[in-house]
């Protein structure tokens, strides 16, 4: 029979995770593990960053802010890119789970952008003598925060959840133009902010002893993002589908 035809496993996975009920159950199983991994990695990373790594020869202990500032700055851009990919999927294929995941990412991206700006200011004061300057890197990062807040506000201001997600997804795609501006700001303009010292390809100019806590924190913030995004998305999903039978079955009958 025709329906016995085997489906490509990747296509099957996309179809399954696109189902709100399957996504809700699967994410519920992953969430405790993700939180546990994030907690362990963060504890290990911060111990290395604050205690194990030797002080910098020029900035002494103040440079320890780097180990949270830089991973947060990476995440502020990484989450934006991830959100834009999900927004694109949501717009093209109209998948509800993709819409919700995109919108669930925005507050976490905004949180990391906020951390980046705060820790940058607290690092700038002792090193540059000012909490804030209208430098290209910092200004473009501040614009990123405003774009995140704009997406959140737009999503909340429209009553129809699905229409709201589509409009906010379009704004997310338009805001994508800011990412290369942030990335290249230290090269295009003369800035107070230092240039890139860590590269995925080619040699990094950062001291090797500083890399372990930085890598641990980079991984920890990634698993954190997945955990927090899923926690948000699960809430949004059952709220939006509150009158669907699968939510009644899962929430209504549970003790």
């Amino acid at each position: 029979m025709a329906n016995k035809q085997k489906k490509n496993p990747i296509v099957l996975f996309i179809h399954k995770t696109g189902s709100p009920e399957y996504f809700y159950k699967l994410s519920g199983r992953f969430l405790p593990w993700l939180i546990a991994i994030t907690t362990i990695l963060t504890a290990w990373g911060l111990y290395q960053a604050l205690y194990v790594v030797p002080p910098d020869y020029q900035q002494s202990e103040s440079y320890r802010i780097l180990f949270i500032h830089v991973p947060s700055a990476w995440m502020s851009m990484f989450i934006y890119a991830a959100m834009a990919v999900m927004a694109f999927i949501a717009l093209v294929w109209r998948i509800k789970v993709a819409e919700i995941c995109a919108m669930a990412s925005a507050p976490i991206g905004a949180a990391f952008t906020f951390i980046t700006l705060c820790t940058g200011a607290l690092w700038g004061k002792p090193m540059w003598g000012a909490y804030w300057v209208w430098d290209a890197r910092m200004t473009s990062e501040l614009v990123l925060l405003f774009i995140y807040l704009g997406i959140i506000a737009l999503y909340r201001s429209i009553d129809d959840r699905r229409a709201a997600a589509r409009v906010a997804s379009i704004m997310a795609l338009v805001g994508l133009v800011n990412l290369p501006i942030i990335h290249y700001s230290v090269e295009w303009w003369t800035t107070l902010h230092q240039g890139q010292t860590i590269r995925l390809t080619g040699p990094s100019s950062i001291d090797a002893s500083m890399l372990p806590p930085l890598i641990i924190m980079a991984v920890a913030t990634k698993t954190y993002f997945i955990a927090a995004m899923l926690a948000n998305a699960r809430n949004m999903l059952i709220e939006q589908d509150r009158n669907k039978s699968w939510v009644r079955r899962l929430i209504g009958d549970a003790p």
């Binding site: 802010i65 500032h69 949180a111 951390i115 705060c118 690092w123 954190y224 927090a228």
Partner: peptide, 16 residues
């Protein structure tokens, strides 16, 4: 500067 930075980082993420 160091402890305020780490405080903001942890507080924000725990709230999240």
């Amino acid at each position: 500067f160091v402890w305020t930075s780490y405080g903001i980082f942890l507080t924000t993420l725990v709230l999240g």
